[in-house]
Amino acid sequence: MANHLTRRDPQHPLGRFDPFSDMEEFMHDFFAPALRMRDVGNGRMRVDISETEQAYLVQADLPGVDKDDIKVSIDGNRVSISAELKDEKVMRDGGGKVVRSEREYGQQYRSFVLPHEVDEAGAQARYQNGVLQLDLPKKEGTGGRQLAIQ
């Protein structure tokens, strides 16, 4: 098999085509809307939950949400978070039109069950820089009971 070099003209439209990097970019652009719909469009917010001896610590990513549009409810060991992303219409001077918009809006909802019941009276919530932080103390005496097999 003979090896030979092919001269490319960078000014020619096909001379700039790199099949590997251009295909990767094409595939990313092609699948990006579907991936965004899977993760964000269905109202799924990203949540981290950690546990200490006394409490659960929850961090939920809610960028672009106003603090007043977040609701947290606790029912025993079930925690529910809902948030509303509002569509802000941007009016440009000169009557310009929006060419592309990727900003999300709508309702997001997330609910999860924790192993222990939460003490609602001691629960605290803070929202800063797009992150909701929940401190959820465990209710005393709700550790459950393990049954002995007979």
Results as ranks from 00 to 15, higher is better:
69 D>F: 02
109 Y>W: 08
106 G>I: 05
120 E>Q: 06
11 Q>E: 14
56 Y>W: 09
67 K>I: 14
103 R>T: 08
5 L>Q: 12
8 R>E: 03
148 A>H: 12
106 G>T: 03
52 T>K: 05
38 R>K: 13
9 D>I: 03
100 R>F: 03
74 I>S: 00
88 E>K: 03
131 V>R: 08
110 R>Y: 06
40 V>N: 08
32 A>G: 03
122 G>A: 05
140 E>W: 00
17 F>E: 06
67 K>Y: 14
25 E>K: 14
119 D>N: 11
13 P>Q: 07
38 R>W: 14
148 A>K: 13
52 T>M: 03
144 G>C: 00
112 F>L: 01
61 D>I: 09
64 G>I: 03
114 L>E: 02
53 E>W: 01
98 V>C: 06
109 Y>S: 11
60 A>Y: 01
43 G>R: 12
39 D>V: 05
12 H>T: 04
121 A>P: 04
93 D>N: 06
10 P>K: 10
146 Q>R: 13
64 G>H: 06
63 P>Y: 09
81 I>T: 07
67 K>N: 15
48 D>S: 10
27 M>F: 15
44 R>S: 14
118 V>H: 07
47 V>W: 00
45 M>L: 10
147 L>K: 10
134 L>D: 05
43 G>H: 04
75 D>Y: 04
10 P>G: 07
63 P>K: 02
1 M>V: 06
35 L>I: 15
54 Q>T: 14
33 P>K: 11
119 D>A: 04
63 P>A: 02
45 M>E: 12
53 E>F: 09
76 G>I: 07
149 I>E: 12
150 Q>S: 05
16 R>W: 07
106 G>M: 01
49 I>D: 02
134 L>P: 05
46 R>Q: 11
77 N>A: 00
59 Q>M: 09
27 M>E: 06
132 L>Q: 08
58 V>F: 07
104 E>R: 04
143 G>I: 03
114 L>K: 03
119 D>S: 07
89 K>P: 08
139 K>Y: 00
30 F>P: 05
82 S>R: 13
41 G>Q: 02
103 R>H: 12
122 G>K: 12
31 F>H: 15
10 P>F: 08
107 Q>M: 13
129 N>G: 10
34 A>C: 03
139 K>H: 00
119 D>F: 00
112 F>H: 05
125 A>W: 06
33 P>R: 08
4 H>C: 08
122 G>R: 06
66 D>T: 02
17 F>T: 06
12 H>P: 10
133 Q>C: 02
